Amino acid sequence: MSVAVHHVLDGPADGPVVVLSNSIGSTLHMWDPQVKPLVDHGFRVLRYDTRGHGRSPVPSGPYGIEDVGGDVLDLLDRLEIGAVHFVGLSLGGMTGIWLGQNAPERVRSLVLACTSAQPGNTQMWLDRVKQVRAEGMAKIAEGSIGRWFTREWIDAHPDEAAALREMTATTPAEGYTACCELLADLDLVPGLPKITAPTLVISGADDKALPPDHGRVIADGIAGARFEVVDHAAHLGSYEQAERFNQLILEHLEGVA
């Protein structure tokens, strides 16, 4: 059953809508570096907190990818929005893949960033669930920052790193673990050829969580998809290399328009 996720709208009321979908352990604020550039180019930006995260409801797990994808469709219906450009990172990118496969009429284009169609590492995700249930989110948050950013970025931006670490530390444990369980056995690879939306896949060269090989599988599976690898970017490449990500996203969206 869908839940009414928390959302924020920015930009002109008549602009083409771009939906930004967050990673596990984050909120819609992970997209702060993208909002102004998109709005300045005439887009209406719709950000939301994935269920179990931020200010969205936290239903009991487990969650399926059809649940987080269904929440997006419910949000668009509530706002009376038809087809959108969809930009997702990590879990948000997987949500975009599901939408492209199951609701193609609602997807004008896709940007799939630092993500995977089959994350793998099943036992790692299940071990993380056990750790959160035993110890809470604080230790997870410390590890997340080390995956999200390169050490050079963390050392150069200690205040931002601390704020982003707190974003994960304050994520509801139930929402986080339910999404971990979702990721543990997810496999969207067989349906990749069904996606017809113009697609850009972006990977971070230094992403140890979901290395570029994952992005390549997605790009190879979607007809006509463009694949880009961004240097000096770990898992939250949209934040660490915001200028380059913004350039790629805008090129893609304006090319489709």
Rank of each mutant, 00 (worst) to 15 (best):
P119C: 04
T50M: 06
Y48T: 05
C179Q: 02
V5Y: 00
P211W: 00
I140F: 11
K139D: 01
G61Q: 11
R51W: 08
W31R: 00
H29L: 11
A163Q: 12
H157E: 14
D155N: 14
D67S: 14
Y48I: 08
E80C: 09
G237Y: 09
D127H: 06
V201C: 00
A13N: 09
L89C: 04
G136F: 12
I97K: 05
G93C: 00
E166L: 12
D220R: 13
P193H: 13
F245T: 10
Q101F: 10
E105P: 11
G175K: 02
R44I: 04
A219M: 05
A13C: 08
R151D: 15
C179V: 01
G42F: 06
G54Q: 06
H85T: 06
A223R: 15
E243F: 13
A184V: 05
Q123I: 02
C180W: 05
Q101C: 12
V19Y: 03
I81H: 04
V111I: 06
G100T: 04
P198Y: 05
N102K: 15
Y63T: 10
L183I: 10
D40G: 07
L253G: 03
A83Q: 11
L248G: 03
R133H: 12
G224W: 14
G11H: 04
A83G: 06
P158F: 15
M124W: 05
V17Y: 01
E80M: 05
P37K: 12
M94P: 10
H29Y: 09
K139R: 15
A169T: 01
L182R: 02
G64V: 09
P193K: 14
A103C: 09
A242P: 02
G143S: 13
M1T: 15
L28W: 03
E66T: 11
E174V: 02
V129K: 09
L76G: 03
V35H: 08
L75S: 07
E66Q: 15
A161L: 13
L89H: 08
R44A: 08
V217Q: 10
N121M: 01
N246P: 09
G25E: 07
I154C: 11
E251A: 14
A234W: 03
Y48E: 04
D14Y: 09
P16R: 06
R165I: 07
D159Q: 15
Q101K: 13
H85R: 08
T95K: 02
Q247G: 15
Q247S: 15
T150C: 14
A163C: 04
P119T: 01
R226C: 08
L126E: 07
T95N: 03
